[in-house]
């Protein structure tokens, strides 16, 4: 099979969105809550970095800090972010991924682009990443289970990547498939879910500047348990929407059959937007527990679209979010 040459990204394609205005972020900067002391910028180590020091093993990344996405809340520590994960490919318990993800080999890694796009084929991940300048964005992460974290991701806009493959007008959805390899992913030896894990978005959701392709956390390469070497993060959606260890991106005309809704259609929907007004059948989504705040911290009220409504609410105009949960 002939693989077309990987198209270069035009700078004009990125910059317009890179400086996408975010009132929350601007407000935070104005208040001086940038959390700058916590976060190393431009690849420099922060002087006297506190408890959140990443493991020495992970390679440092070169990136800039996106001033529009800085911390309003205190970011979780590296230990919390990398030690408490839902990544069933490595086991069911929250501590399983950190314990078992060592068997995943992230190099070399290839990414297949398929479906309704002008450019498809199989690419070496390093070749793909070269074109994308990395930035740090501090995002709130809300799990469908009712807990949340604040995470300084390093990545680039998902849309920047997708546009390079020139999706056709038939591409209404985009699907992300996680690696399927029970040798490397011991959790896949059991049929807890229908492997491989598949997630998907409407194409306009994927192109929203908030959607982030993630390659690192706390200024370092992503640890395996967080979805190395390439994962999505969609801060306005519940965590399970963000596919990890992605090997395949497919543009499609039809809504993809995604893993959790397929397994449990009455509990997990395709959209999975964070919504305090639509409860999970078995628990309330009105509030959340912020991991790392200790035993007697009060719960936080959950915000519509996890507080990112200004950026994404327009995507869902006219859509009944109670039915399309």
């Amino acid at each position: 099979m002939r693989t077309p040459k990987l198209p270069h990204i035009r700078p004009s394609e990125i910059t317009a969105e890179r400086y996408f205005r975010m009132r929350r972020g601007l407000l935070a900067s104005a208040l001086g809550l940038a959390g700058a002391s916590l976060i190393p910028a431009s690849g420099r180590a922060a002087p006297g970095a506190p408890a959140a020091t990443p493991a020495a093993g992970a390679a440092a990344l070169r990136y800039t800090r996106n001033p529009h996405f800085v911390a309003v809340d205190k970011p979780n520590t590296y230990e919390e972010i990398t030690g408490y994960n839902n990544f069933y490919e490595f086991g069911i318990d929250k501590t399983d991924p950190a314990a078992n993800a060592g068997s995943l080999r992230t190099r070399p890694w290839s990414l297949t682009i398929a479906g309704e796009a002008e450019v498809t084929g199989r690419y070496n991940l390093e070749d793909i990443l070269k074109a994308h300048p990395l930035e740090e964005r501090i995002y709130r992460h809300r799990c469908v289970e009712g807990w949340s974290m604040v995470i300084p991701w390093v990545g680039f806009p998902l849309g920047d990547l997708l546009k390079r493959f020139r999706p056709t007008s038939r591409a209404k959805f985009v699907e992300f498939t996680t690696l399927l390899d029970p040798q490397q992913m011991p959790g896949q030896r059991r049929g807890v879910l229908d492997w491989p894990y598949v997630e998907g978005l409407r194409i306009d959701e994927a192109m929203n500047p908030l959607a982030l392709m993630v390659v690192g956390v706390y200024g370092r390469e992503l640890p395996n348990q967080n979805g190395a070497p390439l994962r999505v993060h969609l801060p306005w959606k519940y965590g399970f929407k963000s596919g990890k260890s992605i090997v395949r991106i497919r543009f499609s005309a039809r809504q993809p059959r995604t893993t959790w809704p397929a397994a449990w259609p009455d509990e997990y929907g395709f959209y999975a937007n964070v919504n305090p007004n639509v409860d999970h059948p078995r628990w309330s989504q009105a509030t959340e527990r912020r991991i790392g705040e200790g035993l007697f911290a009060p719960r936080h009220p959950t915000e519509m679209f996890n507080g990112y409504g200004e950026q994404v609410a327009s995507l869902y105009q006219g859509l009944d979010l109670r039915r399309n949960f």
Partner: peptide, 21 residues
Amino acid sequence: VCNLTIGTHLPAPGLGVDPVR
């Protein structure tokens, strides 16, 4: 819980990242 809240150093395996759960 004593280790977590009042900073004792009792020999306990700890409650991990999410002690409540």
